[in-house]
Amino acid sequence: MSGQLTNPLTFQELLFRLQTFWASRGCVLQQPYDVEVGAGTMAPETFLRVLGPRRYRVGYAQPSRRPADGRYGENPNRLFKHTQFQLIMKPPPADIQELYLESLTAIGIDLRRHDLKFEEDNWESPTLGAWGIGWQVMLDGLEITQFTYFQQCGGIDLDPITAEITYGLERIAAFLQDVESIYDIVWMRDPVTGAEVRYGDIRLEEELQFSVYNFEYADVSHLWEHLRLYETECQSLIDGARVLENSKDRMKIGRYPLLAAFDLCLKCSHLFNLLDARGAISVTERVGVIARIRALAVGVARAYTNQQTAAGKE
């Protein structure tokens, strides 16, 4: 197509470029978190790191699972599991928007030949007790990034504020490669033979089978049961942390497994999403279940903040 790069980045090159760019700006590069999450924000590298006063900069790709968005691999624009490149800057540097624009240049977008707008879009997650102020970044009418200044997380007012930049990798890759379907994205190109591996080659089966499971097979009564078990265990860890709060024993406080409690909370969130996809949660129940998960997220966030302070880490 006229004007696009003759050799646009493959899906994996896109990720490399973003990682390289942000690493050179002083960010830790992390691997995706290996518990199911609905968004990169829920991974502990964001959810827990934004709490408390410690500076942190990290970038990671995060596969994000949203069972209800599954389309059996039939819809060219919707996925059960998509990939976010998640970037956290705490506190945000004054030139963060300029850095972001440079990152676009780094992935081959010549801004002199595109239309870029920052349009108001505030972010809120009732299940995480989190919200922020920011924009959706529109490139030629396409939302390519969500840019958020976190104000609250786990019900806790944040200081310092963290800036979160979330790139939708499939969207950006489809845009750069000018393909109509996500499944046509070139994931990699053999440097010797030029042979291409497409997104669909790697992921189509997964989209299909997980759509089938999420919508048809997932056992609703078991899901409720799993939710209850994970919730109980998470809650008892939160309760245990509260008992420890009066302790003077830094070591004992420091080794208390709140990170594990957070994993359990993430499990609950994913189970909720599965139940939702199964159509098992009525509108009436919905609010109640969200409140239960929120209570866990808020409980962990609070306990974790206290732990960091008490263990003398902050």
Partner: peptide
């Protein structure tokens, strides 16, 4: 929110 050359126009239009 920009002014582009003919090539830029065709890229932005296409997008």
């Amino acid at each position: 929110n920009t002014e582009v050359d003919a090539e830029g126009q065709s890229i932005i239009r296409h997008g």
